[in-house]
Amino acid sequence: MAMDSDEILLDTEERMEKATEVFRNSLQGLRTGRASPGLVDSVRVNYYGSPTPLKQVANISCPEPQQIVIRPFDQGILNDIIKAIQASDAGLAPNSDGRLIRINVPPLSTERRREMTTRIGKFAEEARVAIRNVRRDANKTAETSEKEKLMSEDDLKGLKDQVQELTKKYEGKVNDYARDKEKDIMEG
């Protein structure tokens, strides 16, 4: 489909932003050595037959650096929350007193920290590939637009340069987020 330069740039930036956001969200679920609601808030709980993010059915807090407390809005789903946390890949052991759930977040072992940084690297590479795929799509669309005389050859070259700038910008964001999370994990 042919588009003009502005449409292509806007679409490209939106899609690169989305890929970066998906990456950021995947990092929030990764454990550092400290308790954080982000470790469990996206765990999906079976709530009246529908998988619902934990943060929508419970209050999640971290009263201490090594502890998460989950207070369900509806006591009836306490066991469903426990099952969902146990089934998640967070590697956390929930304890309940019948009213609320406490999770002690043990410090990460050196081996676990290495595993986590490897996962971050994998997630980051997936995000960079997604960004490069957006670049490829943008360049294809631009070439189609140039063939259909919606832009000149010079415009096409300028647009490809701008798309490359966006690619560098979003790959840089991904690299920054990855580096910050790795630092958190190694120091946490």
Rank of each mutant, 00 (worst) to 15 (best):
N25M: 14
N25H: 15
N25L: 11
S26H: 10
S26F: 15
L27S: 01
L27Q: 04
L27V: 00
Q28V: 09
Q28G: 09
Q28E: 11
Q28F: 14
Q28H: 14
Q28Y: 14
Q28C: 05
G29K: 11
G29T: 12
G29Q: 13
L30P: 09
L30S: 00
L30R: 02
L30W: 07
R31Q: 08
R31H: 13
R31W: 14
R31N: 06
R31F: 14
R31G: 00
T32V: 02
T32F: 02
T32K: 05
T32C: 03
G33Q: 05
R34F: 12
R34W: 03
R34C: 00
R34K: 07
R34A: 02
A35F: 09
A35S: 06
A35W: 04
A35I: 04
S36D: 09
S36V: 01
P37C: 07
G38D: 15
G38P: 03
G38S: 10
G38H: 14
L39Y: 04
L39V: 04
L39A: 00
L39K: 08
V40C: 09
V40F: 10
V40G: 01
D41G: 05
D41P: 02
D41C: 10
S42W: 12
S42L: 15
S42R: 15
V43S: 11
R44L: 15
R44N: 13
R44C: 12
V45L: 07
V45M: 08
V45I: 09
V45S: 02
V45C: 01
N46F: 00
N46G: 08
N46M: 11
N46L: 11
N46Q: 12
N46Y: 08
N46T: 06
Y47A: 03
Y47N: 07
Y47S: 01
Y47C: 04
Y48N: 01
Y48Q: 00
Y48P: 12
Y48G: 01
G49Y: 05
G49H: 02
G49Q: 07
G49R: 11
G49A: 04
S50R: 13
S50Y: 10
S50T: 15
S50E: 09
P51G: 03
P51V: 02
P51A: 04
P51E: 09
T52H: 08
P53H: 12
P53E: 06
P53I: 10
P53N: 13
L54D: 03
L54P: 14
L54V: 04
L54K: 13
L54W: 11
L54S: 11
L54G: 08
K55G: 02
K55M: 13
K55T: 05
K55S: 10
K55H: 14
Q56R: 07
Q56Y: 12
Q56S: 08
Q56H: 13
V57R: 05
V57P: 00
V57H: 00
V57L: 05
V57M: 06
A58C: 10
A58N: 03
A58I: 02
N59F: 08
N59S: 05
N59Q: 09
N59G: 02
